[in-house]
């Protein structure tokens, strides 16, 4: 595996809703195996950036290259692309009508065309990995927030993704459940999964990620190693934001 291979190259990405410019001139590169944390105040455009990357939002201008191909014009299938670029949401978004197991099995069959046995085996493997193998027959509404989020991660992993995008995966959780989800994410990071993580968990950003991107009012204000960002940020705004969230 070539760890220097570029997975994403985002060039001059711009997004506006009506007159409201939410992202302006975003440029960044994500290489295979990198864990990039995206931090910044609420409303700074972090979710919109992730949603543009898997085309839940259509970019207004600029381009996003996935392995060198423009995702809007150069990829053969949007479905396949989205299977390769998984997403985990703040609100889990598990299918309410399906059990835990079905949540992980049916997308594999529908999108990847996998057979029943392979899909089941894959789903069981990842449900076990996130510690949810005992709950395969439960419906989402019977689970706690932390359990739901672990199933959502297993569902994304079951698609054999190249990258997973996480949009504040622990923000909707009760404090005592944050740890179980972060520890799953930590182990994925250690195994070399490429991850883009929007987070307010500064310890995760500092200890787990290879790079931290600080966003402010629709621009990337600073893109640096966690050491620099947390110990000696280059930008005044980064410093201000961190002192606000870290409370010192």
């Amino acid at each position: 595996m070539n760890t220097n291979e570029t997975v994403f190259e985002i060039k001059h990405l711009q997004k506006q809703f009506g007159d409201h410019e939410v992202l302006r001139d975003i440029n960044m590169t994500v290489r295979r195996g990198e864990v990039v944390s995206i931090i910044g105040a609420s409303g700074s455009g972090k979710s919109t950036l992730l949603r543009c990357v898997n085309l839940l939002e259509t970019p207004s201008d600029g381009e996003i290259l996935y392995k060198g191909q423009n995702i809007q014009t150069g990829i053969p299938s949007l479905s396949r692309y989205r299977a390769e670029v998984g997403m985990v949401f703040q609100q889990f978004n598990l299918f309410n009508n399906m059990t835990v197991l079905q949540n992980c099995v049916s997308p594999q069959k529908l999108v990847l065309g996998r057979g029943n046995n392979e899909a089941l085996e894959t789903a069981r493997h990842f449900l076990k990995k996130v510690g949810m193998e005992q709950f395969i027959n439960a419906k989402p509404r019977q689970l706690s927030g932390g359990q739901k989020q672990r199933v959502a991660i297993a569902r994304a992993l079951s698609m054999s993704p190249e990258v997973i995008l996480f949009d504040e995966p622990t923000s909707a959780l009760d404090p005592e459940m944050v740890g179980e989800v972060l520890s799953v994410m930590r182990s994925l990071a250690n195994e070399g999964l490429t991850m883009l993580v929007v987070t307010h968990e500064m310890s995760f950003a500092r200890d787990v990620s290879n790079r931290v991107v600080f966003m402010d009012q629709g621009v990337i204000e600073e893109d640096n190693s966690p050491e620099v960002i947390f110990n000696n940020p280059e930008k005044q705004r980064t410093r201000e934001f961190l002192s606000r969230v870290l409370g010192n």
Partner: peptide, 15 residues
């Protein structure tokens, strides 16, 4: 029906 149901499905590649 919660918009998240559509987004969850879109995000795994379902049509």
């Amino acid at each position: 029906i919660d918009k998240g149901q559509f987004e969850g499905a879109a995000a795994v590649g379902m049509t």
